[in-house]
């Protein structure tokens, strides 16, 4: 039972093609990514502690918004991630649909719950920032409204993926939906933004009109990088678990688990 040895018929291939080819093999992907996950988590934790220390302890309070400004060190990176993950998911979906690569399908679909989590964080942090700043928990402000629609888009993808029994069909259907959503997302964003100005909603901007001080910018950037490592680690973890789940009856899964036990 040697599952791991792969026969490569054409010896002369360039390194990138070989890498992509190998990534398509579930056991190889499983073992290769397994090495990165602990490092990603470690970098995430170190950066988060550093960023939060700078943001929550070191940075001065904003002279317009006071202490509540500190919520933005969570809200803004989470909002960036919610959009970044959706676009990543759409690009992965496109690749998955065109080349029918199972690993890419799985990566696209496991992105969705992480993106939804960041969207929820963005919404709750935004509304808790809104209470002291605007005086209410919820304002139909353009950013919050777009985020809410984005959450619905994520939930649609997750819902469709989980409703269809056959995993690959489910992934392809949900990938197509993710792409349709990605085409619509800019339209939704601009129409909501414009709708907001039309109905003269809240006019307080995120930075409160004050130019951002470097001491406020640094923690924001560090948190933005930290969340990317969170996404990477979480995505790979989820993708590996999904592979185990789908290949539960295949030999490589048992091999992998036996190795770990012994």
């Amino acid at each position: 039972m040697n599952v791991k040895t792969e026969k490569i018929s054409k010896p002369r291939k360039n390194a990138l093609v070989m890498f992509i080819h190998k990534m398509g093999s579930p056991p190889w992907f499983y073992n290769f990514t397994g090495k990165f996950i602990p490092w990603f988590w470690a970098i995430f934790i170190v950066l988060t502690i550093w960023g939060l220390y700078l943001g929550l302890v070191k940075a001065p309070a904003d002279y317009l918004q006071g202490e509540s400004f500190r919520i933005l060190y969570l809200h803004v990176p989470a909002a960036w991630m919610s959009l970044l993950i959706y676009s990543t998911m759409a690009v992965l979906s496109f690749i998955a649909l065109v080349w029918r690569i199972r690993i890419v399908e799985i990566l696209a679909m496991t992105s969705a719950p992480i993106g939804a989590a960041f969207t929820i964080v963005t919404l709750t942090a935004g509304s808790l920032w809104g209470r002291p700043t605007w005086g209410t928990y919820w304002v139909w402000d353009a950013r919050l409204t777009s985020e809410l629609v984005l959450l619905f888009l994520y939930l649609g993808v997750i819902g469709l993926y989980n409703s269809i029994d056959e995993p690959r069909k489910a992934a392809r259907a949900a990938c197509l939906l993710a792409m349709v959503g990605a085409v619509n997302l800019p339209i939704i964003h601009y129409s909501v933004k414009w709708w907001n100005t039309l109905h003269q909603g809240s006019s307080i901007s995120l930075t409160g009109g004050s130019s951002i001080d470097p001491s406020m910018l640094w923690p924001l950037l560090i948190m933005a990088i930290a969340t990317k490592f969170y996404y990477g680690a979480n995505l790979l973890t989820r993708a590996r678990v999904k592979l185990l789940e789908q290949d539960i009856r295949k030999a490589w899964v048992r091999e992998v688990l036996k190795e770990k036990k012994g």
Binding site: S68, I71, I114, Y230
Partner: peptide, 30 residues
Amino acid sequence: HTPFIIGAYSIGAVVLLWCAIAPLLRKKSI
């Protein structure tokens, strides 16, 4: 403003922690 800051960060921590732990629990059962 402190309760709002604490609230926002703790909700964020709970959501992201759950999002990170959920696949590990799934892996255990698999």
